[in-house]
């Protein structure tokens, strides 16, 4: 886990190539929507689709979403998938996966840690990667679905993927990480788990996102828009009461070895706003 820069896997659909780049200067964007928008700004000419996670995904409960930034008919959209993708990208030791340009033919991708292998279009994404450690995006009855269950509020991402001729992909993350102060980490983790009454969604027995004990009925519909800090972390918006608290976020980041200050966290919305201004 690199706690002083952001690591991004770029997949060029036109050239069938992939490479990992590290960005120390994007550290201040934290992750998710912040990182995604800044990457979009840098790579706008390649019409990117950017899947991003935050530093807490895989490490703390309710940090269970993946942000997706892309241009849909001239508008830069941000959407949020539930499911298992966020932990898998995190365990790839990546902050973002960026799809650039457009494929010349229908393609499916097998992403494992820092590598991407192009597959023929008739390969099912769910057959790729490692069982129990993968997450996959595929088309089910023409609808874009993550892990056979989780969807997005609108169908604009599926149109975008179809336009790029990307029919699906699987992400397998096999990385393991250590936290320096295990005792404090465990304490904070368990403390956050007791905060389920602060979530603005009812507990249920529906398929849950990775790292979330709620099993709520809303997990499969994804999210659009919302709190910049929460979406930079990329936590569930139903956990906004927990992850919009700067003190809590600072504690979580600090225990994982990130040296963000309170001011860095407080200033994030303005930083993201500045990027957004450049689009308008």
């Amino acid at each position: 886990m690199n706690s002083s820069s952001k690591k991004v896997l770029f997949i060029d659909l036109e050239r069938n190539t992939s490479e990992v780049k590290t960005f120390p200067d994007l550290y201040k964007y934290i992750g998710g929507i912040g990182l995604g928008l800044r990457l979009y700004e840098i790579y706008e000419d390649k019409d990117p689709i950017i899947f991003s996670v935050g530093p807490l995904n895989g490490f703390f409960p309710y940090a269970s979403k993946t942000s997706v930034v892309f241009n849909s008919e001239g508008v830069v959209e941000d959407m949020y998938f539930g499911g298992y993708l966020s932990t898998r990208i995190r365990f790839c030791d990546l902050d973002s996966i960026v799809f650039l340009s457009k494929s010349a033919k229908d393609a499916v991708l097998d992403i494992q840690n820092e590598s991407a292998v192009f597959k023929e279009a008739d390969v099912a994404p769910k057959s790729l990667g490692l069982p129990g450690k993968r997450s996959f995006v595929s088309f089910l009855d023409k609808k874009l679905v993550l892990d056979d269950y989780f969807t997005l509020p609108e169908n604009i991402l599926e149109k975008k993927l179809q336009k790029k001729r990307l029919l699906g992909f699987s992400v397998t993350g096999t990385g393991t990480f250590t936290v320096k102060d295990e005792t404090k980490y465990e304490e904070l983790y368990k403390q956050l788990l007791t905060k389920t009454p602060l979530l603005t969604v009812e507990k249920g027995f529906f398929p849950s996102c990775s790292g979330c004990p709620m099993g709520c009925s809303k997990s499969n519909v994804g999210e659009m828009g919302g709190n910049v800090l929460v979406h930079s972390l990329v936590a569930c918006s139903f956990a906004e009461n927990i992850y919009s608290d700067v003190g809590t976020v600072f504690s979580c980041l600090n225990i994982l070895g990130y040296d963000y200050t309170h001011e860095d966290i407080e200033n994030l919305p303005a930083l993201v706003q500045n990027v957004l201004k450049n689009f308008s």
Partner: peptide
Amino acid sequence: NKVGLEGALIRVFRNK
């Protein structure tokens, strides 16, 4: 003392 899925002693598989 680790975070991740590799080498986990419990595995959860999903099926649709």
